[in-house]
C-alpha cells in the first residue's frame, strides 16, 4: 500500500535518487523556466498589456460595443448548452463503457476519440455538408424554415462535437480502474440501479467529472476552427468571442481585439484557478477515491 512508503524513514535511502551537481540542476531549471516564460507566460502577459495600451477607458469602451457584448453573450450561451450536454452524455457513455460489456464497445471508444484526432475545421465542414444550403438536408431544412448553418444551432452543434471527448476521456480510465465490485455490492444490498448510480458510481467519479467539465468549458468558450466554418461571421449575431477577436484584429482595432482576448484568457485562467483550488482543498478525498484501497 502507498501509505507504508510514505512513512519509510529517509535513512533507508542513503543514496539520493538524482546525483546531478548543483550547477547542472540550476541550468536545467533555468532552461525550463525560460522556456515556460517565453512560450506561455510572456504571451499571456502581452495580451493584458496590449489591452491596456490606451488605458482603461478604451478597454471599457470595447465592452460597451453592442457587437462585443453580443459575442460574449453568444459564447456564454454556447458553453451553457454544450458543456452540460457533453457532461451528461459523456458520463452516460463512460458509465456504459466502463461498467458493462457489449458489442461495439471498441467502436464507441474510437468514436469518442474522433473529435480529438480530426481537425476542428473538418468538424465544422461536416455540419455544412449535412445542413448547409447545398448540403444533404439543406433543402428540407430550408422548406421548413429551420436555420442551422450560419446560425446559433450550428455553432452549438460544432462546439458540442469538438468538446465531446473531454468529459468521457477523463472518466473512462478512472471508472475502468475502479471496476464494478462496489456497484455489485450495492445491488446485493438491495439498492436499485438508479440509487447505486447516484450513491456509489457518481460520488466515486465526481472530481474527475468536475475536471472534465472545467476542461470542456475552457475549450467550448475558446473553440475557433469548427465554429468559424459554421458561423458565417455575422457581427452581433453569430460571432463568438474568438471569432469576434479575429474580426477586430483584422479591422486594425488592436486594443479591442486584445481587450476581448484578455477577457477570454481571464475566463480560462479562472477555470484553471478553480481546478487548482479544488485540488488543494480536497487533496485527501481525491487520493482516497482515485486509488483502489
Amino acid at each position: 500500500m502507498a501509505m507504508s512508503d510514505r512513512f519509510l524513514p529517509l535513512s533507508h535511502h542513503p543514496e539520493r535518487a538524482t546525483s546531478e551537481t548543483a550547477p547542472t540542476k540550476a541550468v536545467l531549471i533555468a532552461v525550463a523556466g525560460l522556456f515556460l516564460g517565453a512560450i506561455l507566460f510572456f504571451p499571456l502577459v502581452t495580451v493584458f498589456i496590449e489591452a491596456l495600451r490606451k488605458g482603461w477607458g478604451t478597454l471599457f469602451g470595447t465592452f460597451a460595443d453592442p457587437d462585443t457584448l453580443a459575442a460574449i453573450r453568444l459564447t456564454l450561451l454556447v458553453a451553457a448548452i454544450a458543456v452540460p450536454f457533453n457532461a451528461a452524455v459523456g458520463l452516460a457513455a463512460s458509465w456504459a463503457i466502463a461498467k458493462f460489456e457489449f458489442r461495439g464497445k471498441n467502436l464507441l471508444l474510437t468514436l469518442i476519440d474522433l473529435p480529438f484526432s480530426i481537425s476542428p475545421v473538418i468538424s465544422g465542414l461536416v455540419y455544412v455538408l449535412l445542413f448547409g444550403a447545398q448540403g444533404w438536408l439543406g433543402p428540407w431544412l430550408d422548406q421548413h424554415n429551420i436555420h442551422i448553418i450560419f446560425a446559433v444551432p450550428g455553432i452549438v452543434l460544432a462546439t458540442v462535437l469538438v468538446t465531446f471527448p473531454f468529459v468521457a476521456r477523463e472518466l473512462i480510465p478512472l471508472m475502468q480502474s475502479q471496476g464494478t465490485s462496489e456497484e455489485e455490492a450495492a445491488l446485493m444490498l438491495g439498492a436499485s440501479g438508479w440509487y447505486t448510480f447516484l450513491k456509489v458510481t457518481l460520488p466515486n467519479v465526481k472530481w474527475a467529472l468536475l475536471y472534465g467539465v472545467l476542461l470542456c468549458n475552457a475549450r467550448a468558450m475558446g473553440e475557433f476552427g469548427a465554429v468559424s466554418v459554421v458561423s458565417g461571421h455575422i457581427r452581433g449575431l453569430t460571432n463568438t468571442m474568438p471569432l469576434h477577436i479575429e474580426i477586430l484584429y483584422n479591422d486594425y482595432n488592436f486594443v479591442g481585439a486584445f481587450a476581448v482576448a484578455s477577457l477570454l484568457a481571464g475566463l480560462a485562467l479562472v477555470t484553471l484557478l478553480a481546478k487548482t483550488f479544488l485540488e488543494w482543498r480536497f487533496a485527501g478525498e481525491l487520493a482516497a477515491t482515485s486509488r483502489r484501497h
Binding site: E182, M188, P203
Partner: peptide
C-alpha cells in the same frame, strides 16, 4: 443475500 466480496468492495467514499 449477504455477499462479502474478495476485495470487500467497501464504498470508499
Amino acid at each position: 443475500i449477504g455477499f462479502v466480496f474478495q476485495q470487500y468492495a467497501l464504498f470508499r467514499h
